[in-house]
């Protein structure tokens, strides 16, 4: 699968999963992409730079989510709270 197609595929897959789950570990993304961690990191970071994915951090752990989804989005006035 071409590089750009992988990015699209990841986003589509996350949109599907985002109905039940708003945040994903890096490992989950690497698994969806079927890539080794270093390659997966490159793809994921590009999506972050393009604003199609956002980092979520608890301070100790980092997760990824689609922008505008999740409870903090409301606090930033980006989207309506899901709660």
């Amino acid at each position: 699968m071409a590089y750009e197609e992988k990015k699209e595929m990841l986003l589509k897959e996350l949109e599907k999963k985002s109905k039940n789950k708003t945040k994903f570990y890096f490992n989950d993304l690497a698994k969806i992409l079927g890539e080794k961690p270093r390659m997966a990191k490159k793809i994921v970071n590009e999506l972050v730079d393009e604003g199609k994915l956002v980092f979520w951090s608890s301070g100790s752990t980092t997760m990824y989510s689609l922008p505008g989804i999740g409870k903090q989005a409301a606090a930033e006035g980006e989207a309506k709270s899901e709660e």
């Binding site: 972050v48 730079d49 956002v54 980092f55 979520w56 951090s57 608890s58 301070g59 980092t62 989510s65 999740g70 409870k71 903090q72 989005a73 606090a75 930033e76």
Partner: peptide, 24 residues
């Protein structure tokens, strides 16, 4: 306090820890 957040500076995934109060 709510747990964690999505804030950061451009290109960085660390160094900023989002904290929001649940009684704003």
């Amino acid at each position: 306090w709510k747990h964690g957040g999505i804030v950061g500076v451009f290109g960085y995934g660390g160094g900023v820890i989002g904290r929001y109060c649940d009684q704003p």
